[in-house]
Write a protein that binds this DNA or RNA. Structure first.
Length: 360
DNA sequence: TCTGGGGTCCTAGGACCC
DNA sequence: TCTGGGGTCCTAGGACCC
């Protein structure tokens, strides 16, 4: 039997929350992100701001040049987390099969519950109404027989959209879309596909799977399957956390020396605090450095036994730093990530979807 | 224009073991 | 003297997502 998968995506989430909390921002172009003088980028832009060409991940300096009257707001992740929890609770009242992808997005598997809930369209409208009534935010909803179709559907009529792709029409729904619409096809894969003559999902669907495999290997097979409208990945409410990390881009480049060492110490404290709060230990520490010219390197070290203490983690990171940096190097970013995680005695790793948000 | 921070997953080479 | 195959772990880099 065909599944019924919902993808729900809050519209311009961070920016919408700011407009909700600060009524004077409503109707005005709002950009959420770090200040331009600290090399910030846009984390979210209100629809008013998007009209000026402002997009997520754009350097803030450029965004404010495009729209000088835009209001810039620094992100408040704690607040976004609160609202996210409210929204995920609304979803979980419908089904326990809720898989959050981030603070503002989730899949719901409502297979077998639809009839009792009055049909897909009624269910979708009810969810949208409840989110609006309880949080004041709009959510775009896509419904299909699998994740790929539901996710792409939710994106088609933003904001406040509702798109239902009926069973059997998946392939036709996807066919006219550009290849970039497929999940996992980014700038590089898009270029490779275009150069191979594929511009739309339909063109991939009509090709032989071997043609796409020749470009991307095993991954190509999955892309080809998606293009057919097929995707049997389940909605998984629980995910084991695989890594915990912190990194910062400095407002100005830092030379190798005591200042960089101090930043490393700060970063180690941040990561160890998060490890401790989640009750987990790590066996591997990854040091990440970005040179002034944007070249990025990582250096990692593993230990036989898991650790979580500041002395251990900072010590490993500092040793890696000493082995790596040379006199005269200048860095724009430094980060510490911990992987090969294990529980610190609790018996299980924390699930990153717990409570609907990252435990930060 | 000048490029964040939180992640996940994959690939590829080399060490090491049987 | 030259030469295996499979499996696992570690490391480094990169694509991609929100």
């Amino acid at each position: 039997m065909a599944r019924t998968i919902i993808h729900a995506d809050l519209d311009a989430f961070y920016a919408s929350v700011e407009q909700l909390d600060r009524p004077e921002l409503r109707g005005r172009p709002v950009v959420v992100g770090g200040p331009p003088e600290s090399r910030g980028v846009v984390a979210a832009a209100s629809y008013e701001a998007r009209r000026f060409g402002i997009r997520s991940a754009m350097p803030m300096s450029r965004a404010l040049r495009l729209c000088p009257q835009a209001v810039r707001v620094s992100p408040r992740f704690g607040r976004y987390g609160e609202i996210s929890r409210q929204v995920m609770a609304i979803f979980r009242a419908v089904t326990p099969l809720v898989e959050p992808l981030s603070l503002d997005e989730a899949f719901l598997d409502v297979t077998g519950r639809v009839k009792r809930l009055g049909g897909v369209e009624a269910l979708a409208r009810r969810l949208k109404r409840q989110v609006r009534e309880r949080t004041g935010l709009t959510v775009s909803v896509g419904i299909g027989t699998n994740k790929t179709v539901a996710k792409i559907a939710s994106d088609r009529e933003k904001p406040d959209g509702l798109v239902i792709v009926r069973p059997g029409t998946e392939r036709d729904f996807l066919a006219p879309l550009p290849v970039r619409a497929l999940w996992g096809v980014g700038p590089k894969a898009e270029t490779a596909l275009n150069e191979a003559g594929f511009r739309t999902v339909g063109e991939i669907a009509e090709a032989a799977p071997q043609q796409v495999e020749a470009l991307f290997g095993e991954r190509g097979r999955q892309i080809w399957e998606m293009a057919q409208g097929r995707d049997d990945r389940p909605v998984e409410p629980e995910h084991e956390r695989k890594s915990v990390g912190a990194e910062t881009t400095f407002p100005r480049d830092l030379a190798a020396g005591p200042e960089l060492r101090q930043e490393l110490s700060r970063m180690a404290q941040e990561v160890c605090g998060r490890l401790a709060r989640q009750g987990i230990l790590a066996r591997t520490v990854v040091l990440k450095l970005r040179y002034a010219n944007f070249r990025t390197i990582t250096r990692q070290a593993s230990r036989p036994d898991p650790a979580g203490g500041l002395e251990e983690i900072r010590g490993m990171a500092a040793a890696l730093l000493d082995q790596t940096v040379a006199e005269g190097d200048r860095f724009r970013l430094l980060g510490i990530h911990c992987t090969n995680l294990s529980d610190g005695g609790s018996g299980q790793l924390p699930l990153w979807t717990e409570g609907g948000v990252d435990p930060r």
